[in-house]
Design a protein around this nucleic acid. Structure first.
Lengths: 141, 141
DNA sequence: AGAAAAAGCTATACGACATAGCAATTGGTC
DNA sequence: GACCAATTGCTATGTCGTATAGCTTTTTCT
């Protein structure tokens, strides 16, 4: 047996947990021909009809340079519709096909969340989530 | 203010926490001209002198196809040395320069761990780490 | 009116990870 | 001992998320 220098290393556990969990989620979304990032964009649009893509990018930490082709793909697939808000920006909203897809996304995410919850000792889910959020907010920026 | 569909979403918080924390760690390592993955490989080698790179890959979940160029870089920089173990594999160990660098890596990681710990309510660090590890082990494979 | 900021975009690069396929060596089984 | 399967290390290549640089057009502020 080899010595593990990352035993009980908080940052390392966080990374492996996130990677493993995202890999599994990506598999789920593959059946919808969606990547996790695309799914997250669709969810934000659904929750905020007519949102500008710059705003979506700020919420999800996706730069405008990366939002552009991403949104273009969703538009090409007719999952979203763009309508001008002013001369420089579009408001995004889901198309009917997008609405249908988001319903499936939500169900996949629900299953995914449940799978994670099942690993956490009862009563500690909220505390864990809060700490993860605190780490995010503290470490970013 | 926009509606956030990921409010209290465990998987999403995990991902953002991990991304933000890794980005900060990568900045720290940049001064050493090291990427986090390279640093982790050096730590495993230090903890297990003469380890084969296939074994390092298994411990860190790095495939042999990706290990090969990674280890080659470390060898080019003379941070590690390879000695034949049998006809098909090398044993890896740190060079003197590698030892020096690992000391710096450890100090960076210590600071990083402390920064995360400071965000967690006292007494909950261990529980949090344990849960992260459980999520990793459950979700992977 | 002019400068600064915001929005969307293209081109391009990097880092981590993936698959496919290959040569050489080792191990297990008949 | 011969043979097949597994292991090791490797190249080539693709994907995904993210990054910077630079550009145009439009809006906002002074």
């Amino acid at each position: 047996m080899k010595a593990d220098p990352f035993k009980n290393n908080l940052g390392y556990m966080l990374r492996r947990a996130s990677t493993a969990s995202m890999a599994r989620l990506a598999e789920q979304f593959a059946t919808l021909e969606l990547r996790p990032t695309e799914a997250s964009v669709l969810l934000v649009i659904e929750a905020n009809p007519r949102i500008r893509q710059s705003e979506v990018g700020r919420m999800l930490a996706i730069r405008s340079a990366n939002m552009a082709p991403l949104v273009a793909r969703l538009d090409d697939r007719q999952l979203i519709e763009r309508e001008p808000v002013d001369g420089r920006s579009h408001g995004l909203r889901l198309s009917p096909a997008g609405e249908t897809l988001v319903a499936q996304i939500k169900s996949e995410i629900e299953a995914h969340e449940k799978a994670i919850h099942d690993v956490i000792p009862t009563g500690q889910e909220e505390a864990f989530t809060k700490i993860a959020k605190a780490i995010w907010k503290t470490m970013e920026g």
